[in-house]
Every structure is written in structure tokens, then in C-alpha cells.
């Protein structure tokens, strides 16, 4: 029976993906059993080089983990590349918490295999297995918190730079 369903549903995934999943910061605290549960929630998608994964300005519903390939995160409309992500990297995790507008476009640089985790699946995990759901949410909160610290440092540096420039300009004005 079990094997019948497995073949019908196409179940089994590579052990390679399990290892990869455990290496993603979001899931690094999870046991292999819990990783299995996460694995069942993930959607596996293949993209060809040049194909867009999501586009800036669209509503976002979840995050993507790169199994294999390279993804370019680009700012529209210039198409300027913000960052290139490779195997094991992940992106779009804010959309897991809240249905937000994508702030950049993600495009496959090479042929890619991605795993995606979506908000409805995370919410159903919270409903069915709150212990695991909370673990994932906690990691997510930590990551978001880290990014927030990074961003506020950056904002502080920029503010300082701005003030210095303004002072310099003010001095120049006074001279003139």
C-alpha cells in the first residue's frame, strides 16, 4: 500500500536534497525527521536559464531555495544585478511571513532547480505541527532580525555620511 502510494505520488526525493535542506540557515536546527516533514511541504521547480522566478511588483507568497544553479536578483526597471545566488542560497523569505510585494526580480542565470516553501504551507504546518512550525518561525524571525540589524547599521552609516556631506556643503555655502 505504502509503496503503491509512493509510486503514484512520485514521493521519494534525493538524499542530496535532504543534506542541502539541513544546510539552509532556516532549517539548520531541525532533526532529520523534521527535515522530512519540511521536505513534504516543499515544491520542486525547474527553471531554464533566463526564465524569471518572480518579478518585482508582483505579490510574493513564499521563499525559494536553490538546489542547483545560479539565480540573479535584479532591480527593475534597470535590470541591474543586486546579487547572484548559488546552490544552497535562499531568497524571498520575507514573503513567508506576510504577503508582500516583491522588491526585486529573481531570474535564473543558468538552468536551475529550486525548492519553494509557501505561506499557506507554512500556516498549515503551524496548524498541524506547531512545535516544528514554531522552530521554523523562530529561525525566520532570527534571520529577519539579523537583516534588520544589518540594515539599520547601513542606515546609520548613510545618515552619518549624509550629515557630513550636508556639513561640508553648509561650510561651502558659508564660504560662498
Amino acid at each position: 500500500m505504502q509503496s503503491l502510494w509512493k509510486s503514484l505520488l512520485g514521493g521519494a526525493s534525493g538524499a542530496n536534497e535532504d543534506d542541502l535542506l539541513g544546510a539552509v540557515p532556516l532549517f539548520e536546527d531541525l532533526t532529520s525527521r523534521e527535515l522530512d516533514a519540511i521536505q513534504r511541504l516543499l515544491h520542486r521547480r525547474d527553471y531554464v536559464a533566463g526564465e524569471s522566478i518572480f518579478i518585482q511588483g508582483e505579490p510574493g507568497l513564499g521563499m525559494y531555495i536553490i538546489v542547483r544553479g545560479a539565480v540573479s536578483i535584479q532591480s527593475e526597471p534597470s535590470g541591474r544585478e543586486l546579487v547572484e545566488l548559488v546552490d544552497g542560497d535562499f531568497f524571498g523569505e520575507i514573503a513567508l511571513l506576510n504577503e508582500v510585494i516583491r522588491t526585486a526580480t529573481a531570474r535564473a542565470k543558468t538552468d536551475c532547480t529550486l525548492l519553494s516553501l509557501f505561506q499557506p504551507d507554512l500556516l498549515s504546518l503551524l496548524d498541524r505541527n506547531p512545535r516544528l512550525g514554531v522552530k521554523v518561525l523562530l529561525s525566520l524571525a532570527r534571520l529577519v532580525g539579523l537583516r534588520l540589524v544589518e540594515v539599520s547599521d547601513e542606515v546609520e552609516a548613510l545618515t552619518r555620511e549624509c550629515e557630513e556631506l550636508r556639513e561640508a556643503a553648509g561650510v561651502a555655502d558659508g564660504d560662498g
Binding site: 533566463g50 526564465e51 524569471s52 518579478i55 518585482q56 511588483g57 508582483e58 505579490p59 527593475e76 526597471p77 510585494i101 526580480t105 531570474r107
Partner: peptide
Amino acid sequence: PVPGPPDPAA
């Protein structure tokens, strides 16, 4: 939605 450019890859 921000009016985005058409997807060149699709």
C-alpha cells in the same frame, strides 16, 4: 502593483 516591464523570458 507597480507597473512592471513585460517578462522577456516568458
